[in-house]
Design a protein around this nucleic acid. Structure first.
Length: 206
DNA sequence: TAACTGATGAGT
DNA sequence: CTCATCAGTTAA
């Protein structure tokens, strides 16, 4: 995979990342669920739900750089969420890796995820995926397309559109109408969709 | 359904 | 400095 294949609008980059393998040392995860996030209002794809939706900060700085770089952040004080930057250099964008299947290094992943009931659960959900791969805030900024990196991407070509499903992003209270979540329905590791409690309700009732 | 946890950024 | 917020997970 080349950087220019990710230096496109976040939804297009997200589709290309499905089916790719994300390696962290000996543990490999097949990506089956992703979410695209845009950038600030002055860019080509404004996104109020994005960490970069209100401009550049110390935390989101890497989102404004070249594509194919690891953006990690801490969520809810305990989970590390793994993102791949997208869009051209100077334009903010990223793809959150939400869920995957462990395809290598099962033993190590099981040690890191002792609470997982089955192997399918090892990297199911953004926090669990980061935990299974052992990714920490210290890995912020890793060049994922460099074969020498401890954390790297192995691309197998984008899946066909028939294999990809899309829908609203999870846990996002604004811009919830954007179908910027993509997943492979054939995988059992796709996390269950749960609407944000702050998102507008679709219909009245119970 | 809610307890939990801590970095972040906006407001004081 | 404080304070609300957060792209969650888990046990109940």
């Amino acid at each position: 995979m080349r950087a220019d294949e990710l230096a496109v609008e976040p939804p297009a980059a997200a589709r290309r990342l499905l089916g790719a393998t994300l390696w962290s040392g000996e543990v490999g995860v097949r990506i089956v669920e992703v979410e695209a996030y845009g950038g600030d209002p002055t860019g080509p794809w404004p996104d109020p739900a994005s960490h970069s939706g209100r401009g550049r900060t110390k935390r989101n700085a890497v989102m404004f750089g070249p594509a194919g770089v690891l953006y990690v952040y801490l969520s809810y004080g305990m989970h590390t969420c793994v993102n791949v930057t997208s869009g051209p250099d100077g334009t903010a964008g990223a793809v959150l890796i939400r869920s995957g299947e462990v395809v290598a290094g099962l033993e190590k992943a099981r040690v890191r995820r002792v609470t997982a009931r089955t192997d399918t659960d090892l990297a199911k959900g953004p926090g669990n995926l980061g935990s299974a791969l052992g990714i920490t805030l210290g890995d912020y900024g890793t060049a994922l397309l460099d074969p020498a990196s401890p954390i790297r991407l192995e691309w197998h070509g984008a899946p066909s559109t028939a294999e990809i499903a899309s829908g609203p992003r999870v846990g996002v209270s604004v811009a919830a109408e954007q179908p910027w979540r993509f997943w492979l329905p054939s995988s059992a590791a796709v996390s269950v969709y749960r609407r944000s409690p702050r998102a507008p309700r679709i219909a009245a009732g119970s």
